[in-house]
Design a protein around this nucleic acid. Structure first.
Lengths: 150, 150
DNA sequence: AGCTGAAGTTCCTTCAGGGAACCCTGATTG
DNA sequence: CAATCAGGGTTCCCTGAAGGAACTTCAGCT
């Protein structure tokens, strides 16, 4: 956990970082998304310290990103994405898109995404929710919103 | 910097985290994006330790996200986004979208985005780069890519 | 009764973040 | 021309988080 708490800033980036900004959290989320839903699976896959994994899972559950549910009569639990958490996976898809483009190098991307709707291997593109045209960093003006700091 | 180096994993999420996963880095990027391009401006805006800000700026420059350029005959520098860095701002826009939806609360979003193309206050939506239909976490299958680990 | 495996918990060490003070360089001012 | 100023760091110490290994707990199995 970062020392400075980002969650209190009037900034949706800072608030989002308060939820998944800690080291390992996005990778834990990815593991759950791809079907590694149990403590031992995630720990083995990532090589993360068990102590830190416990902290991250608890935090993600507290934030409503994951749900901890028993899967056995023994005390065994799996973690599943909530709706809030599933929507956060969008963020991972954009990270993948950028990483594939700028960091994958000659070997190419490690994972491909096949889109159900068209059946093609593709990647995400950012579009305006209103008009459907591309919407990137240079395509917008910033305005103060209702929740802006005074 | 996290102890475990993510950059060597065969995962674009981990590699991207190696670039902007450290505490404060996304907020530094946001500041540069909104026009706070100088050391003192960023430090005052975020309240970040000067030591850590120095480390983050150097790292972002090393990674090709920011360019450090003099703006005076005195030793004064400003940081500007490279193309690589500008595309990373897409990630911030998606973070804002999620944070606005799930964390803004009754006060509403602190910042609004007006899209140049349509003039409307809007938000980003993830679409398939191939067919243009919505593309979210549940809309894709994952396949091993050429750069997959063996 | 003893063993096993999942899911943590505890403990110790090391290193990164916070914060304040200090330094360096080239203007600008008296 | 010396003193001051401001931006952009650097240095120092302290605290607290990450790594890692060992230990614990609980239910089922043999």
């Amino acid at each position: 956990m970062q020392r400075t708490k980002f969650g209190e800033m009037a900034c949706s980036i800072a608030r989002t970082l308060d939820v998944i900004g800690e080291p390992w959290s996005p990778l834990v989320l990815r593991d759950v998304y791809v079907g590694l839903t149990r403590f031992e699976q995630i720990q083995a896959d990532l090589g993360i310290s068990r102590k830190v994994l416990t902290e991250r899972l608890n935090h993600l559950v507290d934030q409503g990103i994951l749900e901890r549910r028993p899967y056995d009569r023994r005390p065994r639990f799996e973690y599943v994405l909530t709706e809030k958490g599933t929507e956060l996976v969008d963020l991972l898809m954009v990270m993948v898109g950028w990483g594939d483009r700028w960091l994958a190098g000659a070997a190419g991307p490690p994972v491909l995404y096949r889109h159900h709707a068209c059946g093609q291997v593709s990647s995400v593109d950012l579009r305006c929710a209103h008009c459907g045209e591309p919407m990137h960093a240079g395509d917008v003006d910033l305005l103060p919103g209702p929740g802006a700091a005074i």
